[in-house]
C-alpha cells in the first residue's frame, strides 16, 4: 500500500510552509496554468474595466452622504410611475 506522507519538513515555520505549499502547487500546475490565466483575464476585465468604467455605484458617485442618498431615493420612488 502506498503511503502518502507530507513532503514539507516539519521544522520549517508555519508561514513558510504555507508559502511553499502554494508556491510548489502553482509551479506544478499544468491545466491550472491556462485556467489561472483565464481567471486573471476575467478578474482584470471585471474589476479594472467593468467596475471602473461601466458599473459605477450611482448613489455613491452622485451623492456625498447617506442623508442625500436617502433623499434622492425618496424623491425617485415618489416620482416614479
Amino acid at each position: 500500500m502506498k503511503e502518502n506522507r507530507p513532503d514539507i519538513p516539519k521544522q520549517t515555520s508555519l508561514p513558510m510552509r504555507i508559502f511553499r505549499f502554494y508556491r510548489d502547487g502553482f509551479r506544478s500546475m499544468t491545466i491550472g496554468r491556462r485556467l489561472w490565466l483565464l481567471i486573471l483575464i476575467k478578474l482584470f476585465i471585471i474589476f479594472f474595466i467593468f467596475k471602473i468604467f461601466f458599473f459605477p455605484d450611482i448613489l455613491h458617485r452622485d451623492y456625498d452622504n447617506d442623508r442625500d442618498r436617502a433623499a434622492a431615493v425618496r424623491s425617485s420612488l415618489l416620482d416614479r410611475r
Binding site: 485556467l35 481567471i39 471585471i46 458599473f55 450611482i58 448613489l59 442618498r69 431615493v73
Partner: peptide, 29 residues
C-alpha cells in the same frame, strides 16, 4: 471540478455591480 470552478469564478460579482448601477433604488431600499 477545478475547470468548472475556474469557469464560474467571479461571474456572480457582476450581479453585485448591477445592483449598484442599474438597480440603485432597490439596493438602497
Amino acid at each position: 471540478f477545478g475547470i468548472n470552478f475556474a469557469m464560474g469564478v467571479a461571474t456572480g460579482i457582476i450581479l453585485e455591480f448591477e445592483f449598484g448601477t442599474n438597480w440603485s433604488n432597490y439596493s438602497w431600499f
